[in-house]
Structure formats: structure tokens, C-alpha cells
Design a protein around this nucleic acid. Structure first.
Length: 803
DNA sequence: GAGTTTGAAACT
DNA sequence: CAGTTTCAAACTC
């Protein structure tokens, strides 16, 4: 680790200094003040940021504060965990306590009508649908029979779960167990909430009395399975009753990895329970980091279903749930925490990503409209939105929002993953050397299919993946360690070579900054919104977690100059025609993706990586000021022609769709001319009628998914690599200046609604636009999550109306 | 590996 | 806003 010359943090004029003006006191602030001093400072700072900007504090911020609500680390000692510093505890607590929403209420956290803290702790969907003044738990009538029956039916419930449950009686948890026969009208989050309420059910106490050891285990297991949130609470509350119950060695292991699709095997971050539970029990439970994320994923998917209004096909949704389950489990296996808030805030994104990762899975249901993010913005937006830059904890939180590609491999070969490796990963990341670990993983990880996505490995997105890579099973922990050591022992030059080689092979590359202290956009890591890691060859690097305040300040400074400095450079024009959408499993670059600002090449002719367009494998556009452009991905002068080509293509698709609908009145001579014209255009004319028909049948939202997450690093497919195309009105966005983009951002909601009323435009196009609008925001999100939630609802309404 | 070229970012 | 400087990546030898 570099030892920077002096600590700029101390000298920096941080708003957290004691001289700082008092932050306006609010319930939120008071809440934060109850946190640990360190985190309170951060929270204060965060609050202040939003106070100053008059922006609503995004709920994601609570990822961090909640983490600290229970800082009891005694369980660490009990489990002989080497917690070497507070950060370890902090991070570890992150993994343990993030879902302790109910405890807040129990502990009487203040909750004012104006700014109920819990409002930030629930799924935005819930926030949106529920009065913010009573967001804590659903009322009894809202919570299905699960609540009413309470744990009196626990035994039966367990049995049902284990038997894969085919009953409809308990619509709550059991719906998750047998999703194919249930519907998803019940929000999974509600399930969690309802389950939480069960903690207070005295019948549970009665039930626990007289437990046999086996029963105890089964019950708590089932508790976790059914009710990951309350499971922890149960374990704490009824520890005395369970204490002494002997568990068979190895019997406490969770099967989630073996049968990841089973909801009842998705276990919970049960570490908290370790404070009171027998160690073996805890051990078993600790092996089961699946349930919470599992359920969250379900919540995510529920969000998806809700967002798309796809409640008509619950079965498909449930199928998706099943498909996604292993992924979520694998995430938990990595020991990363998940906050309902953060997860839910980004749930559609997560869903989309998951869908992508699943590849050929059966996930077919439409994606939520309007929640997609440009692939470049995935990491950044989330990083920003969750203030990840400010905290490693938050960094972790961001991981929750993403699903690693390797999780698919988990499913395929669960035996590849050892729990020990998982645990090792967890602890290694809880260490100060976290990033070195990442680096090691990065160095040893070579084959992420997702690599084709932007941002590259440097991005938070990839960082997240890398952090959990050990669980992938492809790389042993020892290999990781070796890689780390190797990297750490490298000279900067060698590191650079090494990373450069990796870069060539499509893997991670890191910065090599010498004078910028990695706090300027020169630094690729900083520009990507991530900390530098051990694999970086930078000198005097301040882009590290320990300088997070400085990093944040610098970032703010840069953003004050250019609010979109951290926005994706490559933007995808939005009205991509379905014909131009990649086919399933064949991810190609949207050829209409363009550099937001354009290049300025003078000598390289846009044929070398000096050119940002070329580097991003996108064509040059009118926004470029390059001389003698010969960009092989599309030269500037071809831009207009390609635009015309795409417009025609789009028109043709509209015609095809109209044809399908039996409505020929929309055909215009122009349209037909366009069709004829298209035939003369190469390569657009290669679009077959079948393709067009297929394209017209493509669910627009699904297409939108591909576009949203379409890697810009691949070659265009249908319209050829040199055919930058498809620039309709929306596409001007590509070349918009930042101010224009900001204007649009401010007007996102209105735009969205207006689009919803535009009956003539294909749904997919609207999706595309929404995507772009939401892709751009950096930190802090200009659109509160509540608004996003509202938009989800609007989408739902739109979908319903369109149907 | 050292040095050069290049263009983005930062600065004036 | 334009010109200049700084910077680090890309590239060449």
C-alpha cells in the first residue's frame, strides 16, 4: 500500500469538521446521531449534502447507518474471528445486521411522520404504496394468513416447506415455496415484514418450549428459511431455550448450494444468531448465506413483476424466481450483506442483470420499463446513488445490486464452491486489504463472460464481481492468495505490464498514475468510480478507502465542475429498433452507441486507442471533432447515412408491427419508399422479413433489456460494424451537452409520463428513452427512489393501459 | 523497459 | 471559450 506523502484528508476542508455548521436536525439526522461516532459523522456529512442540495436523502444511504445499529461484535470473538480492526467489525456487521429492520422499531427508534426512518428501510415499492407514516409493518389485514396463523402453524409450515409445499393455505411464505402454483401479488417484502411480526407472537415461545434438539434445529432452520429476517430475531430472543441443544456435526449445513432453487434452502446470514446459538448451529447457519438474498431476489422479481404489470402470469414470474434463486444464494454465499432498501431500490436493475447473467435460462418475462441503466452507468449510478464512494460498507451494499456472472456457474456446479472458500472471501474482504484481495481475484480471474460489458473490470460493477470471485469455484483461495502476493510483490512496472496484459486479454486493467494521486479523471479507477487496488501501479494514491472523505470531496469537486463527469461516456441512442437488438445469447454492441462528448483526435485518425470512441468500440459521431476520422467502428461522415438507415429500419419495423395488427392505414408512401430504400442499403437491407417479424414480436421491454445492458464493446450485428445507425429524435441525446442532459434528467418523470400517454410510439421505444434518462444520473441521484418507485407504478399503469 | 506519441483532463 | 499545460494511456522501438 502506498504511503502517501502527508494526509490530505486532514488538511482538506471537510464538512465534517467540528466547525461545520450544524446540520439541520431531522428525524433522519437524529437517527444518524445514534450511530457510532464514525458513522454518524459520515451520516451527518451525507445528510448535509442532501440538505444543502435540497434533495431528498436517497434511501440507499441507510445501507450504512443500519449496518451500525448493532455493532456488537462479541460474536466475532466467540467464534474466534480475527477481527483486527474496527473496519473488520464494521464490514462484518454489515453482513450481519443489515436486515434488522424490525429491531429498530422494537428499540423505539424515533419515527416522525415527516421523515420516518423506516421509510427508508423498506422496499420503495412499499414506500410508494404505503403511507410513509406507517411503513414499518404491514397491518394484519395486509399480511396474509401467515401472520394470522403465526407460528402456531410453524411445525406445519416447516413440513410443508420441506415437502416442497403444495398447499395454498399459507399464502405467505409458502407462495415462495411453491411459486408455480401461487401468485406474486403478495410482495415478498411483505412476507418479510409479516414474518417479522411473528417475532412477537407468544405462540412461538410456547412452541419452542419442549423442543427436541432435532426440532430445534429444524425449526430454526425453517424459521430462517421461511423468514430470514425474523429468523435472526428468533435466535436471539429464544436463545436460552435453544441453548444446549446439541447439533450433529455438519448437520447444520445448508443445502442451498446443493439445491439452490429451493426456497427452503436459502438460508440466512445467521451470524447474529451466533451470539446465542450453539456454535455448531451457527456454523451450519453460517454456511447458509442464501436466504436473505434469496428472498430479496424474490422481492426484486416481484418488483419486476409489479413494474411490468406482469401479475397476469405469476407462474412465469415464479419461474424466474427459481432461476434467480441460485444467484442470490451465491451472493449470500459470498457473505455480502443486502439491505432491503438498497436492494429494492435497484431491484429492477438487479433483475435485469440477473436475467442477463442467466443467459439461456427461462427468464422471459418482460423487464421493468424505465428502470434500465446504461451498462456504463450501472456501477456508477449505483455507486453514486448509494454513496458507495464514501464507505466500504456501502461498497458492499452495491454488490448486492449486482449479480455475478459466475453465479450461474454456481448453479451449474455447486460442488465447485466450498463454504470455507466463501468464508475466506468474506473475511478477506472485511479486511483492510480488501482491495488487494480484489486485485488478487482480478488477477486470477480470467473468464467472466460479463467482461464484455462496460464498464470494464475497473468499474464498480466488475469490482463487485471480483470481490466474490473466489466463490466462483474456478479459482481457489490459494490461487487468489498467490495472485495477490504476486501482484503485491511486483514492481509498479511489472504490475503495469501485468495489468496491461490482462487488459489485452479482456480482463482488468488498473491505473498507473504518478502525479494525479488518482484523484483526477486521468485516473481510470477514479474515473470509473472505484478505489484503486493492489494491482494498480499508481504512486501516491489517495483513491483508497482510507481516504474516502478526500475521494468524496474530490469527486464532488469534479462533479461541481461537470455534473456528468462520472456519467458514462458511451451512451446508447435510445430508439434502437428491435431489429438491431442482439439475439438471445449473442450480445453485440448497439452500433448506435456513441461517445457522449465525442473524440478530438487529430493524428490517430480514430484508429488507435488514443481515440476514446475507438477504444470504446463505437463509431464516431457528429459530436466528434476528429480530423481524418477512419474509425473502423463508424466514421463520422457515415453517421448521417447510418442514421438514415436506422430510421428506415425503424420505420420498417413499425410497418411490420402495423401489419401484424391488421392496420395498414399507417403505411405511408414514405414508409414504402423507405422499405425500398432499405433494400438498397447495405447492410441494413440484410434484415430479413423474418427478422423483422421476429423483432416486432419481441417484447419491447425485453429488447430494452438488451439495449440497456448491451455491451458496447461488441460489434454490431444486424446493421454491420461500420453502420452506425439509428438516430432518431432521441438519438440526439448522444451528443447532447451536459446541460441538456441535466435538463432531461430534471424532467425525467414528466417525460416518462408523457411517454406513457404516447400511444403511437412503440412501447419499446419508450423503454429505451426511459433507459437513457435514468442511465445518466450520477451521484446524488436526482430522482429520489420514491420517484423511481412511482415510475414503476406508472409503468405498470402504462402497461395495463396498453394491454 | 525506456522513450515517444497522443488526446483527455485540467488549468489559465 | 480558447489556448496551454499536465497527465497517463497507448504505442514504438
Amino acid at each position: 500500500m502506498d504511503s502517501p506523502e502527508g494526509n490530505p484528508v486532514a488538511a482538506s476542508s471537510s464538512p465534517i469538521s467540528s466547525d461545520s455548521p450544524p446540520v439541520q436536525e431531522s428525524p433522519f439526522f437524529n437517527y444518524l446521531c445514534n450511530l457510532s461516532p464514525i458513522k454518524s459523522v459520515k451520516a451527518e456529512r451525507y445528510t448535509q449534502r442532501f440538505t444543502e442540495t435540497n434533495l431528498p436523502t436517497p434511501p440507499l444511504v441507510f445501507t450504512s447507518p443500519r449496518i451500525d445499529l448493532q455493532r456488537d461484535t462479541s460474536f466475532l470473538e466467540r467464534d474466534n474471528v480475527a477481527a483486527t480492526d474496527s473496519i473488520v467489525h464494521e464490514n462484518f456487521n454489515t453482513q450481519l445486521n443489515v436486515v434488522h429492520i424490525p429491531s429498530f422499531e422494537k428499540e423505539g427508534q424515533s419515527c416522525s411522520p415527516a421523515g420516518c426512518i423506516d421509510e427508508y428501510l423498506v422496499d420503495p415499492m412499499e414506500v410508494d404504496s404505503t403511507n410513509s407514516t406507517h411503513l414499518g409493518l404491514q397491518s394484519a389485514e395486509e399480511v396474509p394468513e401467515l401472520l394470522q396463523s403465526g407460528y402456531a402453524g410453524l411445525k406445519g409450515t416447516i413440513k410443508k416447506v420441506d415437502d416442497a409445499v403444495d398447499s395454498n393455505r399459507e399464502e405467505g411464505a409458502l407462495t415462495l415455496c411453491d411459486p408455480a402454483e401461487k401468485n406474486l401479488n403478495l410482495s415478498p417484502l411483505k412476507l418479510v415484514e409479516s414474518a417479522v411480526d411473528l417475532r412477537n407472537d407468544e405462540r412461538f415461545d410456547d412452541f419452542l418450549k419442549g423442543l427436541t434438539s432435532e426440532k430445534a434445529k429444524d425449526i430454526v432452520d425453517a424459521d430462517m428459511k421461511l423468514n430470514p429476517v425474523s429468523g435472526v430475531q428468533h435466535c436471539e430472543r429464544h436463545a436460552a431455550q435453544i441453548e444446549g441443544v446439541q447439533q450433529d456435526e455438519g448437520d447444520g449445513t445448508c443445502q442451498s448450494l446443493d439445491e439452490p432453487l429451493q426456497i427452503n434452502e436459502a438460508c440466512e446470514d445467521f451470524d447474529d444468531g451466533s451470539r446465542t446459538l450453539p456454535k455448531e448451529f451457527v456454523k451450519g447457519a453460517n454456511n447458509c448465506r442464501g436466504t436473505r438474498r434469496h428472498l430479496h431476489f424474490e422481492a426484486t422479481l416481484a418488483c419486476k413483476s409489479i413494474a411490468t404489470g406482469n401479475t397476469a402470469n405469476p407462474k412465469a414470474s415464479i419461474t424466474n424466481l427459481k432461476s434467480l434463486a441460485p444467484i442470490s444464494s451465491s451472493w449470500d454465499a459470498a457473505g455480502y450483506p443486502l439491505s432491503i432498501t438498497s436492494q429494492a431500490s435497484c431491484c429492477p436493475l438487479k433483475v435485469a442483470r440477473s436475467t442477463q447473467n442467466i443467459g439461456n435460462s427461462e427468464i422471459l418475462s418482460p423487464l421493468p420499463t424505465g428502470i434500465g441503466l446504461h451498462v456504463n452507468s450501472i456501477g456508477r449510478s449505483m455507486l453514486s446513488g448509494s454513496d458507495v464512494f464514501t464507505s466500504k460498507n456501502l461498497n458492499l451494499s452495491s454488490q448486492d445490486k449486482l449479480v455475478p456472472e459466475w453465479s450461474n456457474d454456481l448453479v451449474k456446479d455447486p460442488n465447485n464452491i466450498s463454504n470455507s472458500a466463501i468464508a475466506g472471501t468474506m473475511f478477506s474482504h472485511a479486511d483492510l486489504d480488501q482491495q488487494e484481495s480484489q486485485a488478487g481475484v482480478a488477477a486470477s480471474s480470467t473468464s467472466y463472460p460479463i467482461n464484455s460489458l462496460n464498464p470494464p473490470c475497473d468499474s464498480p460493477l466488475t469490482q463487485i464481481e471480483l470481490q466474490v470471485a473466489p466463490c466462483e469455484g474456478r479459482i481457489s483461495a490459494q490461487q487468489n492468495a498467490d495472485s495477490i502476493d504476486e501482484l503485491n510483490q511486483m514492481s509498479p512496472k511489472r504490475k503495469r505490464k501485468s495489468t496491461a496484459n490482462k487488459s489485452e486479454s479482456g480482463d482488468c486493467k488498473r491505473c498507473n498514475c504518478k502525479r494525479s494521486k488518482c484523484l483526477k479523471l486521468y485516473c481510470e479507477c477514479f474515473a470509473a468510480g472505484i478505489y484503486c487496488v493492489g494491482s494498480c501501479a499508481c504512486e501516491t494514491c489517495f483513491n483508497k478507502p482510507e481516504y474516502e472523505d478526500l475521494v468524496l470531496d474530490t469527486r464532488e469537486q469534479i462533479e461541481s465542475r461537470n455534473p456528468l463527469a462520472f456519467a458514462p461516456k458511451i451512451v446508447k441512442q435510445t430508439t434502437e429498433s428491435p431489429a438491431n437488438v442482439m439475439e438471445e445469447g449473442n450480445w453485440t454492441t448497439p452500433s448506435s452507441a456513441r461517445h457522449k462528448r465525442g473524440c478530438n483526435c487529430k493524428k490517430s485518425k480514430c484508429l488507435k486507442k488514443y481515440c476514446e470512441c475507438y477504444q470504446a468500440k463505437v463509431g464516431c459521431s457528429d459530436g466528434c471533432r476528429c480530423d481524418g476520422c477512419q474509425n473502423s467502428f463508424g466514421i463520422k461522415s457515415d453517421y448521417r447515412r447510418a442514421e438514415r438507415c436506422d430510421n428506415l429500419s425503424h420505420e420498417k419495423l413499425q410497418i411490420a408491427e402495423s401489419e401484424k395488427n391488421g392496420s395498414s392505414k399507417q403505411f405511408s408512401p414514405t414508409s414504402w419508399e423507405g422499405l425500398a430504400d432499405m433494400r438498397n442499403l447495405d447492410p441494413c437491407s440484410e434484415i430479413s422479413q423474418a427478422q423483422l417479424q421476429l423483432a416486432s414480436n419481441i417484447q419491447s421491454s425485453a429488447a430494452s433489456l438488451h439495449w440497456r445492458y448491451s455491451p458496447v464493446t461488441l460489434t454490431p450485428k444486424l446493421c454491420g460494424g461500420n453502420g452506425p445507425h439509428e438516430l432518431t429524435s432521441d438519438s440526439a441525446f448522444c451528443n447532447m451537452e451536459d446541460n441538456d442532459m441535466l435538463e432531461i434528467l430534471k424532467d425525467t418523470t414528466n417525460t416518462h409520463r408523457a411517454e406513457g400517454q404516447r400511444s403511437s410510439s412503440p412501447r419499446g421505444l419508450r423503454c429505451g428513452r426511459k433507459f437513457i434518462l435514468q442511465a445518466v444520473p450520477s451521484f446524488p441521484p436526482l430522482t429520489p427512489y420514491k420517484t423511481v418507485s412511482s415510475k414503476l407504478k406508472n409503468d405498470q399503469t402504462d402497461s395495463a393501459a396498453n394491454r
